[in-house]
């Protein structure tokens, strides 16, 4: 159904970005440096969307199938915008980047690769990454790069909603039954070693300080969003050592390979095909 009630939205869709950067000499194309930064952000969102996509038809209740579907679609939308923009620097489409790069060429942080686990584990991951995306996109909306700023301005409203969704479920699972509390704690502990990496240095961000958001500066606002939720849910902050990370340098957990193999299998069987 067409959007009946509201004027066609002026949001920057992946297709609109693709059209804008299409001409060879388009000034809207990303520079090589900015593209490297956008690629990392795009990979984060893409890998997370791929994970969330496997919840559909498996959620605890039908209403939650729809809710997780919305979150997955939003996240995939962010990935598509960022990858389309990144690709403009190298004459590559979003699909070239998503389907025809190997594991070591991906730049996602490792937390996004974490398997879904049970619903509590997915909610724990969503809580952390939505809080992170919220503080990231809030700042990126002020980026000196107008395309990144526009992508972030739309995305921030969506991830704030994701954070709200994750917060509600974190509280319910943590304070619901004994079993749900046990699972919520386990989910949070499984994700916690990957939190620090979100704020580790990103050479691509350092290269374009005006366009990018410095990761280290996000820790404080992130804590300010996340810790009160853990407090409300009566969840202790896990005291677990952080993994070494390195996603922005192409170092990935063993979970990424199988994820990419599945995502890319069909496209790679038909290189050059149009779908």
């Amino acid at each position: 159904m067409q959007n009946q009630h509201q004027s066609p939205s002026a949001v920057l869709t992946p297709e609109a970005i693709a059209a804008r950067v299409a001409p060879q000499d388009s000034p809207a194309r990303a520079t090589d440096d900015v593209a490297r930064y956008a690629l990392g952000l795009g990979d984060d969102a893409l890998v997370l969307a791929q994970r969330l996509g496997s919840w559909i038809a498996a959620a605890p209740e039908l209403e939650e199938d729809v809710a997780l579907g919305n979150i997955a679609l939003d996240t995939l939308g962010h990935a598509r915008g960022l990858l389309t923009y990144a690709g403009s620097a190298w004459d590559q489409t979003e699909d070239d980047l998503a389907y025809f790069r190997d594991e070591a060429d991906f730049r996602c942080r490792q937390i996004f690769e974490r398997p879904n686990g049970d619903f509590a584990c997915t909610i724990a991951r969503q809580l952390v990454v939505s809080a992170y995306f919220t503080v990231l996109y809030r700042r990126l909306a002020d980026s000196a790069d107008p395309t990144l700023a526009a992508i972030a301005a739309k995305a921030v409203k969506e991830v704030e909603y994701h954070l709200d969704h994750a917060t509600l479920w974190t509280v319910r699972l943590a304070l619901g039954t004994e079993e749900s509390r046990r699972r919520m704690i386990a989910g949070l502990e499984a994700i916690w070693p990957f939190v620090d990496e979100l704020f580790a240095a990103d050479p691509a961000a350092d290269a374009v300080p005006a366009a990018a958001v410095a990761p280290a500066g996000l820790r404080e606002p992130f804590d300010a969003l996340l810790l009160p939720v853990l407090d409300q849910a009566e969840l202790p902050v896990p005291g677990i050592a952080a993994v070494r990370g390195g996603g922005r340098l192409g170092v990935h957990s063993e979970a990424l390979g199988p994820l990419l193999a599945e995502m890319q299998v069909l496209a790679r069987r038909h290189p050059g095909a149009v779908w």
Binding site: P14, L46, A49, Q50, G53, S54, I56, A57, D65, V66, G69, N70, A72, L73, L76, G77, A79, R80, L83, E94, D95, A98, Y99, E262, M263, V265, L266, A267, H270, A273, W275
Partner: peptide, 17 residues
């Protein structure tokens, strides 16, 4: 999870949803 383009992936997600 295997849709051969990101656009098709988005459409399929929206449809199943």
């Amino acid at each position: 999870t295997r849709a051969p383009s990101l656009k098709r992936k988005a459409i399929l997600m929206a449809k199943v949803q």
